[in-house]
Design a binder for these strands. Structure first.
Length: 191
DNA sequence: AGGAAGATCTACT
DNA sequence: GTAGATCTTCCTA
């Protein structure tokens, strides 16, 4: 098991979003390790940066200059959302983590979310982030560092089918399908 | 200082 | 399926 390299993120955000499916997200907190598999992700590309939500928060410059592989955390409607910076050098873009499948620390996640139903634990963007106890403090964490509080690591090869669709909740979405998820996984937010 | 808006969630019918 | 809660940031006065 090793962390994904910086190079992994220095590519087209769409490609990175697809490749992130099945990878493990590892959260260290209070000497406990919580982890989950990424089962749903969305790509955000240059045109989106002009979208209302992103422009409103003056995120453009951050998306341009922030290093690939670092986290980018953003609050909307009372929920923290987790992005990972991903774009070729000189370009802009990022990937939003929308849902994970709980692996380790499930009891802690239930406590963080205050729910008992495991399927309802992480099947949504805001839900996953809350279950992992991710807040603004983890903004700009370097996910390629093995000892980071938040790291993305490789998984032993597992095979699955990838589906795509339009994104969810975006008021002005692009005509392209930029949402990707693992087929028939019960933790994706919408089939 | 106050209000509007946003990549959402929950609870209710 | 829809209404209301939610909270942080940005915009205007």
């Amino acid at each position: 098991m090793k962390t994904l390299t910086r190079k992994f993120y220095e590519r087209d955000p769409v490609q990175v979003a697809k490749d992130l499916l099945g990878k493990i997200i590892l959260r260290r907190i209070n000497h406990e390790r919580i982890s989950g598999r990424i089962v749903e992700a969305e790509a955000y590309v240059e045109n989106d940066i002009a979208s209302k939500a992103l422009r409103r928060r003056k995120i453009f410059s951050q998306l341009t200059w922030q290093d690939c592989g670092t986290t980018f955390i953003y609050m909307v409607h009372g929920n923290w959302l987790l992005n990972i910076m991903a774009h070729p050098k000189g370009s802009i873009g990022s990937v939003l983590v929308r849902a994970i499948e709980p692996i380790k620390g499930i009891e802690t996640m239930k406590k963080n979310r205050n729910v008992g139903d495991q399927r309802n634990l992480t099947n949504g963007s805001g839900k996953s982030i809350k279950a992992l106890a991710i807040t603004k403090e983890l903004n700009k964490t370097d996910g390629t560092r093995r000892d980071a509080k938040l790291a993305i690591i490789e998984d032993s090869a597992s095979t699955f089918d990838i589906c795509s669709s339009n994104r969810i909740g975006v008021t002005h979405d692009l005509p392209q399908e930029l949402r990707f998820f693992i087929k028939a996984n019960k933790y994706v937010s919408e089939p």
